[in-house]
Design a protein around this nucleic acid. Structure first.
Length: 521
RNA sequence: GGCUCCGUGGCCAAGUGGCUAAGGCAACGGAUUGCAAAUCCGUCAUCGUCGGUUCGACUCCGACCGGAGCCUCCA
């Protein structure tokens, strides 16, 4: 079955066909670097990182661009609030963003173009648009002429008439149509500014992406991604500018990820308000309620760094991928903690494998490209049949518009099968039939291969390293030894006392047939 | 008011015009264990409501109810 991708433009899944065979160009709208990233900012990168991993696995050569918006009203305002230069703030926040991406195992981004480094390219597009009559200057600004663009609104499904009806005040008096948006803004004193044929100023928001995508990826790209909130006006405008400029389709597939929502956010009164409607009072109340629901204004807005202190980044990544990318996700600590529990079983399996197989799960070498060769090896045929079925189901899910939620389910099935294999063949004991080991290794390798596509289980988790670690381990071995003696002598009250006290210290003991294991938590 | 979208077991969540509607968390029963832990086996849904289309719908259409996002430079 071929890969199918949901295209916002057509509102349906389409067969995936690239502009150039074998190559994929992908553009994702990046952050405005004015404050530390919150979890919502990680959703797009994690999802598109996974998409890139899967496309690469499927044999495509992918080039992925994420822009950095380092000139913008919010940035200017915040810099002046904090008394630092726009440049310094942007640099600091960009670094924060990069750090977070690394922590989240987002590794596939090939280019991070900066808006301020592409002013010339933006001006070229604006000049072309002016030349073709798609733009007009107005008092030091330059506006895009929506009326001139016949299919304006095709991405978000809005018509100019509808927008006319829905628009309220605050539009620049001289604009020809309220929907017209700024390509170039004349600058006020003290703001970052560049020379231009239309006076000193800075670019409008939308033009950046058009210019950088065009420069790095070309006039027609394969995938343009972003949060659902960017569909209108940002993507709509980007699309309008780019296509009006080049006369070519800008992006084949527009992909929008669902937004993270803070569940249980204060003021989540939902429902009671008739949206933006009638009376000004209601309007204010509705707006307030809406603000409260926004991630940025609620407890979910804790910076990702704060979140990393509470949850393993791998758990967070898994949590994001357990739901379909187009669905909204309710964020809450409990939910992530639940995902953490679900992952425990995998880590336990990896430990078991290391004990049984003699080497680390993480050191297994996996296929980096998709192959049609059946998973095979010496051992029970039913076992291999199951492995093949899991791989088929996994790939089928991913081929269906990157259904990571379905793929995650397969991972859990595979885990169960591997655990069953270990327990059926008593591999986790001294009397293990070592000939079954190769089969287990093949299964573990498949698990690693499939998990790698999601960008999880790729590296051993960093253990909390501290100066006393050697001491702790030594002490634990001593305690375990003492308890083993007690158990041997049927002195269970002492053995249980030790175990219970350790539990209170958040240490869990696991008595196996030939040894006792311990772990924190 | 306009434009998108969603409503699956206690919670989260995948999915399909027709075999027994994935999986996770929680719960319960059992195996295992000195007792636990871990693991395994088993139990746990008719898919918001009402109509319609169809031989047949949870899956298509309509209405209604409930929820979300956007229309106002949040990813």
């Amino acid at each position: 079955m071929p890969l199918r991708v949901y295209n916002t433009l057509s509102r349906q899944k389409e067969d995936f066909q690239t502009v150039e065979p074998g190559k994929v160009s992908m553009y994702l709208c990046g952050p405005t670097v004015y404050k530390p990233a919150h979890i919502g900012h990680m959703v797009g990168p994690v999802i598109f990182d996974t998409i890139k991993r899967y496309l690469t696995y499927s044999g495509y050569n992918v080039t992925w661009v994420v822009n950095i918006t380092d000139v913008d009203d919010k940035l200017i305002n915040r810099a002046s609030e904090k008394g630092v230069t726009v440049e310094a703030l942007a640099k600091q926040m960009t670094q924060d963003y990069f750090d977070n991406l690394e922590t989240m195992a987002v590794e596939g981004i090939d280019h991070f173009p900066y808006a301020t480094a592409h002013i010339k390219e933006m001006q070229e597009i604006i000049a072309t648009l002016l030349e073709k009559g798609y733009a007009y200057p107005l008092e030091g600004d330059v506006y895009f002429n929506c009326t001139k663009d016949e299919d304006y609104g095709k991405l978000s499904g809005r018509s100019l008439e509808q927008m006319l009806a829905g628009t309220r005040a605050e539009t620049h008096g001289g604009k020809r149509h309220p929907a017209d948006f700024a390509l170039w803004k004349g600058s006020k004193p003290g703001e970052p500014a560049w020379e231009s044929p239309w006076g000193t100023g800075r670019p409008g928001w939308h033009i950046e992406c058009s210019a950088m995508a065009k420069k790095i990826l070309g006039e027609s790209i394969d995938i343009h991604g972003g949060g659902l909130d960017l569909m209108f006006p940002h993507h709509e405008n980007e699309l309008a500018q780019s296509e009006s400029c080049t006369g070519k389709p800008f992006a084949r597939y527009w992909m929008h990820n669902g937004l993270m929502q803070a569940s249980g956010a204060p003021g989540k009164v939902g429902g009671g308000h008739d949206k933006m409607g009638d009376k000004p009072a209601d309007l204010a109340a509705a707006k307030e309620a809406q603000e409260a629901n926004k991630l940025a204004g609620s407890k979910g807005a804790a910076s990702v760094k704060e979140l990393f202190a509470k949850h393993d980044p791998e758990t967070i990544r898994f949590f994001l991928l357990a739901t379909h990318y187009r669905s909204p996700i309710d964020f809450s600590d409990d939910r992530i903690a639940e995902t953490g529990k679900a992952l425990e079983g995998f880590y336990r399996l990896f430990e078991t494998y290391e004990r049984v197989g003699g080497h680390s799960f993480y050191s297994l070498a996996v296929e980096s490209r998709r192959t049609d060769d059946p998973v095979a090896g010496g051992g029970p045929a039913e076992f291999f049949a199951e492995l093949n079925e899991y791989r088929r189901r996994y790939l089928e899910s991913m081929d269906d518009d990157f259904n990571t939620g379905g793929a995650v389910g397969v991972l859990f099935d595979l885990r169960k099968t591997l655990n069953t294999f270990v327990s059926d063949h008593k591999l986790d004991s001294a009397a293990a039939d070592k000939s079954k080991l190769a089969a287990l290794t093949r299964g573990m390798t498949l698990l690693k291969e499939l998990a790698s596509i999601l960008g999880v289980f790729r590296k051993a988790k960093q253990k909390a390293v501290s100066a006393d670690d050697g001491l702790t381990d030594g002490l634990m071995q001593l305690v375990i030894q003492i308890r083993a003696d007690a158990r041997k002598n049927k002195n269970f009250p002492v053995a249980d006392l030790i175990r219970n006290k350790l539990n209170e210290l958040k240490i869990t003991l696991e008595d196996r047939t030939d040894q006792t294991l311990w772990r924190r938590g």
